[in-house]
Every structure is written in C-alpha cells, then in structure tokens.
Design a protein around this nucleic acid. Structure first.
Length: 898
RNA sequence: GGGCGGUUAGCUUAGUGGUAGAGCGCUCGCUUCACACGCGAGAGGUCACUGGUUCGAACCCAGUACCGCCCACCA
C-alpha cells in the first residue's frame, strides 16, 4: 500500500486515471456475455457546441446509472456520439464564413484551396453546394473531438470505441432506408402546403422549431370601400399591412349583424386596386378589432384555410428571402418585409384609408435557428403523417401495460397532449448539410429509393430535418449483433425541452419503422425508462444559456473542484423533476466532501495496511462498530431504493450524511481510542469494521464520484488484483437489520448524545475547545471503561468520571445515560448558574405544557394511536423528572448565593 | 385561453398527519496528533395566503396570489 498524499488533489488523481483507465475502455460491452444487459445511448450533443452545465447534469446521471449497473454485475453498453445538427451547423458555418480570418486553420486551408475570387462575398450561393459541404466537413472534424474530450474529463465511462455520428455512412443509409420504407407505406408524402418558412435560412421548418415570442407591434385600422355601395366603408384591423397586395377577400362572421348584408358583395382593395369578395366565415372573432379580417391566403395559415373554404385566390407577394414581390406596386416592390410594413401604412395614410394605429402586443413565431419571424409560406414539401399514434400513447400512458415509464411521471401529460394534437411533420429542408432525400424525379414521376433509378432521373435537392435522423439514434447506432443484446435500451436521460422534438418521435419510430430484433423485443420500444432532468438555472432563476452568458464553463469548475466535486455537488441539489438553482457553493461542497473522504481514508492508512476481506463479525466489537455497521445496512437499503427510483439527490445526500456525520464525526472519532491503545480488546474489531465500512462506502459512492473512489480503492489495496477497477467490484447488498447486532444493550447513540450534551455544557461556560477539563457522570446505565474513554476523547476531556451520587454543586446537563456534570472548582457564579438553569427550566416547562395539553385532550387519547399516546406519556415523565431536578439545582445555588 | 410545476431560515434545499431538519453564509471559540476544503458552540423559520377535513396539518382537499415552463391560427 502506497502512502496517500497529504491533501486530496483532484487534478493529479484525475490526470493519472484518464490515461490508465478511461482511455483503456475495458468496460466495453460484450454482446455475447451471459450477464444481464444494461444500455444507454447518449443524447447526442451538437458537434458545434461546447459542454454546458446541462450536458454535465445529463451525462453525470447517465454515468451514474452505467457505473451502478456495472457494479451490479451487468453488461453495460453506453453508446456515445454526436449529432450533425444540420441546419444549426450550416448556419454556424455560414456565419463563420463572414469572418474568414477567424476560421479554424483546417477550414481556412480548405477554403483557400478553392481559389475563389478575393472580392467575392462568401455566401453559400457563391460558394456552391459541394464546396460548402466540404467546408462543413472540415469544420466538423475540427470541432468534433472537443465535446467528446470534455465528456471524458467529466469521467463519462462511455464505450468510446463505438462512437457514432449521425453523418456516418451506415447511419445515413439507415436514415434513408427508413424514409423509403415510410414512403412505400404511404406515411411519407409530398404536398403543397402552408408551412413555416424561415426567410433567414431560406428553408421550411417544422412546427416544433417555431418559437413563439411576445412582440410589441401595431394594429393598423384601415378602411376599404364597398364596391357595390360607394361611400360605405368597412373598417379592418391588421398587423400586417405589407401583405395587403395578397389579400383576396375580406371575412366577417356570418352572424355578425353589423355586416350581414355585405356578405357576397365586394370590398375595394387599395393597391393594387381591385375588388375582392366579402365572405362569411365562423372563424372570425366578432369581438376582436372591428370584427373584420382581411384574408391573405398566401401568407397566413388561418387565412389559407378560409381562402380554401371560399375559393379565394392565392396571391403570393413575397420572395423566399422575405422581400415584397409585387411589381404592380412599385413603391413596395423589392422592399424588405418590415420596412414594407411601415411604407404600406404610409401609403394607406396618404390615400386617406388609415384610420389609426394602436400599440399591440402579440405572439410572433420565430425561427429557432434563423432568429427571425417565420413567414407562413405555401410551398411544396415532404411531410410525414405520423404512424401508430395510438400505440405511442398507449405504451406510455396505459397504467396496466406501461412499456415506457417516465420519470417524473407528470411529463406523460405533456407527451399525450402533443400526440393527441399532432400535425403532419414537415421533414424536408432547403438546406445542404444533412441527409439528402432519397427521392428521384423524372417528368412528373417520383421514386423513393437509395440509388438513382437511372438516366434522366434527378435527385431531390432537399435534405431531411435533423430530427428525422436523430429519431433513429437508439437503433441506428447499433449493429445487428449489438442490437440483439442491447436493444431496446434501458433508459433515456434527457431534458424535457426535447420531449416532442426527440423523445416522442423516437417512440413513434421504434413502434413503426424499426425492424424487430428478437422475439422478446417485438414491442419495438426504443427504451423502457425515460428520465427527464431539470433545467439548470442561475442564481436569479434564469435559464442558463450561451446568449445570456450566465453559464459557467464546466471545465473551469472541474479544474477548480475536480470532476467528482462537480458531479457530486450537482447531484446533491438535483431533485427529480424540478429545475436546479445552480450555486457554485454547492460544487465547492462536493469538493469538500471528497476531501473529507480522502482524509478519512488517509487516517485509516496511517494505522497500517487494510484487510480487504475484513469481517467484523469475527472480532469482538465495540458498540460503536455495531452502530456504524447497522447504519451501513440502512444506508445500503436507502441508496438502493433511491437508485431504483432515479432519486439521485436522495442517494447523494444519504451518502454525504453517512460519510460525514456517522462515519467521520462519530465512528472515526470513537475509533481513535482503540487505535491509540495497542492492547484494546476491541482494536481488531474496530480495524476490521473500518475496512469493511470503507470498502462499502467506496462502492456505494463510486457511481457519483468515480475518480476518488477508484483511486482509494486501488491505493488502499481493496482491489484484489493489481489494476482491477472498482467499477467491476460487487455492489453491496446489505439489508436493513442484517448487520451485526450490538452485543450489549447500551447503544452507541446514547454515548454520542452524551457527548453532544457535554459539548453544549462546555459551550455554555465558554470553555475553549483546546482546554482539557474533567466531567463527572452520574450514570443510569452501565458503561465500560472504554466507553467512558471514548466519551472523554470526543469531549476533549481529561476524563469522564463516574460518581455514585447526584452532584449538586456543579453545573449539570441531562443525557440519556444520566446526569453529566462539569466541575468548575468554585468558578461558577451562582447568579449566572441560576440564570442558565432558569432558561433550561423555562424551555422544559414549555415542553411540558405542550405535552400535557395533548394528553389532557380526551379526544386525543381516544383517537390517536395508542403507541403514540404511550410515547407522549413517557416523554412527559422524563420532562417532569427533569423539571424537579432543575428546581433542586436552582434551590441549591440560591442558597449558595444567599 | 388551456395545461403542468413550484413557493419551508439570508442562500441551496430535506421533510406525505404527532411540538420544523441539513449544508452554506453569519456570530463566538479552537492550528485538539485524518481533514482550516477542518473541529466545537450559537443566533436565525407565523413552512406564500384564505378556507375546509382531522383529536391533531408544512404535509390531505378547495380556492387565491406570485414565480417558472409548455401548448394555442384571435387578425
């Protein structure tokens, strides 16, 4: 056994372990192993991103689950990987190209190899598809390893040899094959529809990628003349006057008496000037604005529907970039849409048709990536009609046959609500980076297949929504052999923010399109449990985000507190299902906890070599040993229960309390007496207990703090063979009450409480911690010499001496083992002592009052459980006795004073 | 507009029916031979509010307020 460093230095421990342990990857799963299986796929982070606190939380939890499973003897597959994040990546690269000097060297080199004209703006249109994709590849290679390295720093014990990327050739093939399958079954179809168009990125996006944001805008009131009744006007409110040229109708509610006679007549659209029909449609809200809606079928989803109901013309007046396209109105033609809004209002005003402008706040849909308001736009896109929605609902919400369990369960409602109101999924994207649609066209014919059907066929230019590749992640990352053993996966750990984008879709994908692997897996669910983490918020309750700059860099935290400190600190404050209020202090506490454990282990190492097979039951044991062993059983059971329910904070807190309070503050302090006395009869038992308990603590704690536990396991020689990882040790399975029982009736708890009381007494007389004093004890229980020595040691006292009679002339405190006195040899001021006793008496009487009141209530006696009543009675008796003694003591000191 | 969470000491939070617990921070005392990333003591809470159920409510029920999140085609 080597000597442990004097202080715990996380960095030195971690650095050494990365090389010798994480990189070795000997936790790689063996599909052929007969052990029970446990598998997780990592929610793939974007290649472009850096590790955030969210990733830390997420991956810490997964690592905890994996290490726990390994300790339980399971064959564990934790599959790592990254997501190409098509649109997000393309946007990032396009943005980076605006500052070519700051590009990563490899990307820059690639760009230079194109020999583009120096004065050419580096837009994607100028660069071209093939070249842009080359640049993105270079970019991905530059960034790709970064996040993986960061996960390793955190201690993530993934099967790094199996790292996957959503743009790997096999993965791409899988994605396209599934597309073809869905097409062949009629779920994937092409259609001309209103979709969410992002003018910034120039692509359609799905409903889930639209972020509703409250905007301060204006409600413009305008008036249109009635064509059939010159001089009569309709007042119309709109937020978008710039689309006026696209108006092909005006709608009112059919029951609206104000306008009933107008239905069927026409309104005069001011520019370009023409007559448009007035229709009655029950969609209209009579209360809102003027109760009249201008209908612009080409630029609003609701208007599109109204238009379809009444056969209104679809007039597209905007380019894909979001510029006005209406040569008939040269004042607006070519203008950017928001500038055009103002100008259109001015034009109306000039024509005398603008009545007023009102400040107005409404929700506007923004493109998640493009960061601009989306433009509802009619375009030809590929859509997925979701298959098996009922089954997807059933596997999550059917109480009798819940194939997939959500933790916390309340997310089921969110999940159901989405599925019940689901719209077809727009999966095509007019972007270049991503999985190309496996679709071919020729003269009005369409074929979906991987290879070109032949001469004259051309492939669809579009790519797929990133999520249409991610939704296969659990399946497509595994080869067939691996799937047989590890699919479906055991648990998915992710944030609730992607419950629709990813989780729900993965479930649908699993049910419908993933071929069954084995007979047992015929249900085709991708995972059995889903654990939703909370969001991490800053001290002010704001969501942590890059844009706010309020997210600390996890690598800085690791450098400062160690990966274990970060992991443990975070887990201790991460309640199931609730958001986490982040506080660096918590991480510091995690680090301090590791240091505490380190030093407890170091203390043990100072007593001589450990015995890895220590069996406390083979030795004579002190009550302190019995106590810590008994509590170990409770700890083990509590941690097991917490782990089974994904209550990581409970497990972490229990471990924290046990190690710090029960093990260090109590047992270790009591053990010192044995360790200092070579001839103590309980010395061997205490050593054995120490080793036994420490080895259990290391294993129970290992999932949370892998580095320090691995280090101590190895260095203290708990490992059977040189180089054995604690990951493959055996998970403890002590049951509550199974631990060795005390050989004596007296319990350690009583001694510890005696010590607590003694410390309070010391404190009340302001006796410095380093000053040795002597205590007297009038014991009501039998105490051994050794137990008295432990009491004295923990009180930093010369001795705790037994006295046969109760002592009157000393300050007294009441303990479960009798009255404890602090002889101060005439230093006690009677007046002060009377005041001290008075305070105690007041408190005691207040307690008595509460208890008496309860016991005096007949209904309490009648209705409360008898064992409770008996408990209160016993308590009352103790209090009464204490009161008498306090009074006696006070009388004594009053005489002294007199 | 609908749904889901939350509200306990200055901060972070345990606590599913029996006189409120912890850690940090604060005050005081300690370089006590594992640990100052520590040890000991202390101050600090009408458990958001209002009703109800109960012998008894932080806890169960109803409602209110505030905070947060999600969903929704009122121009």
């Amino acid at each position: 056994m080597k000597e442990l460093a004097k202080a715990y230095e996380p960095q030195s421990v971690e650095d050494r372990l990365y090389a010798g342990w994480l990189e070795r990857g000997d936790y790689t799963a063996d599909p052929a192993s007969p052990k029970p299986k446990f598998s997780i796929v990592i929610p793939p982070p974007n290649v472009t991103g850096v590790l955030t606190m969210g990733h830390v939380l997420n991956n810490t939890i997964q690592d905890i689950l994996c290490r726990h499973a390994r300790l339980q003897g399971k064959e564990v597959l934790w599959l790592p990987g990254t997501d190409h994040a098509g649109l997000a990546t393309q946007v990032a690269v396009e943005k980076a190209l605006r500052k070519p000097d700051d590009l990563p060297p490899t990307v820059k080199a690639r760009l230079e190899s194109f020999h583009l004209p120096a004065d050419m703006p580096l837009t994607r249109q100028n660069i071209g598809r093939e070249r842009l994709l080359e640049l993105i590849d270079a970019w991905q290679q530059d960034r790709g390893g970064v996040i993986i390295q960061q996960l390793k720093k955190l201690g993530a014990s993934c099967d790094w040899k199996r790292e996957r990327f959503t743009m790997d050739a096999e993965y791409v093939r899988e994605v396209q094959e599934r597309f073809v399958d869905l097409y062949n079954q009629g779920y994937m179809y092409r259609g001309l529809r209103m979709c969410n168009w992002c003018p910034a990125t120039m692509t359609a996006i799905s409903d889930e990628e639209v972020v509703m944001t409250p905007q301060k805008s204006k409600l413009y009131y305008m008036r249109y003349e009635i064509a059939e009744e010159p001089g009569r006007f309709l007042e119309i409110a709109t937020t978008r006057p710039e689309t006026l040229m696209g108006d092909s109708g005006v709608a009112v509610h059919p029951n609206d008496k104000r306008y009933a006679d107008l239905i069927g007549k026409h309104a005069v659209r001011p520019f370009p000037k023409t007559n448009i029909p007035i229709v009655g449609d029950s969609y209209i809200d009579m209360e809102f604005g003027t109760g009249v809606l201008k209908v612009t079928p080409a630029h609003d989803k609701a208007d599109f529907d109204i238009g379809r109901r009444h056969n209104l013309q679809i007039i597209d007046v905007m380019t894909p970039e979001g510029k006005i396209n209406c040569p008939e109105v040269p004042e607006l033609h070519g203008m950017e849409r928001f500038a055009a809004r103002k100008r259109a209002a001015e034009l109306l005003d000039e024509a005398g048709q603008l009545i007023k402008e009102e400040e107005y706040e409404n929700n506007v849909g923004f493109s998640e990536r493009g960061k601009v308001p989306i433009e509802p736009r009619l375009s030809e896109q590929w859509f997925l009609k979701y298959p098996r929605i009922d089954e997807a609902l059933d596997v999550v919400t059917n109480e009798d046959n819940k194939l997939i369990r959500f933790f916390p369960a309340h997310w089921e409602k969110t999940y159901s609500h989405w599925l019940e109101n689901i719209q077809d999924w727009c999966v095509s994207r007019q972007t270049w980076y991503g999985h190309r649609l496996p679709v071919w066209y020729q003269k009005g014919h369409t074929k979906a297949q991987l290879e070109s059907p032949g001469e004259g066929w051309f492939q669809d230019e579009d790519t797929m929504d990133t999520w249409a590749s991610s939704w296969l992640w659990a399946y497509a990352t595994m080869d067939e052999e691996t799937r047989k053993a590890f699919y479906p996966t055991s648990v998915l750990v992710t944030g609730p923010d992607i419950i629709f984008l990813w989780v729900a879709r993965m479930i649908v994908a699993g049910l419908e399109i993933l071929p069954g692997v084995t007979e047992e897996q015929k249900d085709n669910i991708p995972f059995s449990d889903v654990y939703f983490t909370g969001l991490i918020r800053d001290g002010k309750g704001r969501k942590m985000s890059k844009s706010l700059g309020n997210s600390p860099d996890p690598l800085d935290l690791i450098a400062k507190y160690g990966a274990d400190g970060l992991r443990f600190g975070l887990m201790r404050i991460a309640p199931q299902g609730a958001d986490i209020r982040y506080d660096e202090k918590q991480i510091e506490e995690g680090r301090n906890f590791c240091n505490k454990l380190w030093n407890a282990a170091r203390f043990r190492a100072m007593q001589g070599p450990i015995d890895r097979q220590a069996d406390p039951s083979q030795h004579e044991q002190s009550i302190f040993c019995c106590d810590i062993l008994f509590q170990l059983g409770e700890l083990n059971a509590d941690v097991d229960r917490a782990m089974a329910n994904y209550e990581f904070n409970t497990a972490a807190s229990r471990l924290y309390d046990y190690v710090w309070k029960s093990f260090c503050s109590r047992f270790l302090e009591a053990a010192k007496v044995d360790f200092l006395d070579e001839f103590s009869p309980t010395r061997a038992g205490t050593l054995a207990t120490f080793d036994y308990v420490l080895s259990h603590i290391l294993r129970l704690l290992h999932p949370f703090a892998p580095f320090i536990t691995e280090e101590l396991w190895t260095h203290l020689d708990f490992a059977e063979h040189e180089g054995d990882s604690i990951q493959f040790a055996t998970w403890p399975s002590l049951k509550f009450g199974e631990s060795p029982k005390a050989t004596r009736f007296l319990e350690a708890e009583s001694v510890y409480r005696l010590v607590d009381q003694g410390r309070i007494l010391r404190g009340q007389f302001n006796i410095a911690s380093n000053k040795k004093v002597k205590f007297l004890l009038h014991a009501t229980e039998e105490l051994t010499e050794a137990e008295l020595r432990v009491s004295a040691s923990m009180l930093n006292a010369e001795a705790v001496e037994l006295v046969q009679e109760k002592v009157k002339h000393c300050p007294v405190i009441f303990t479960p083992l009798g009255e404890l006195y602090l002889p101060l040899e005439g230093l006690v001021d009677p007046a002060e002592e009377i005041a001290r006793l008075e305070k105690e008496l007041t408190k005691t009487e207040k307690d008595i009052e509460v208890t008496d009141k309860k016991l005096a209530n007949k209904q309490v006696i009648a209705k409360a459980p008898p064992e409770k009543v008996q408990g209160w009675r016993d308590h009352a008796a103790v209090l009464a006795a204490k009161r008498e003694r306090l009074k006696e003591q006070m009388d004594f000191f009053r005489e002294q004073a007199a």
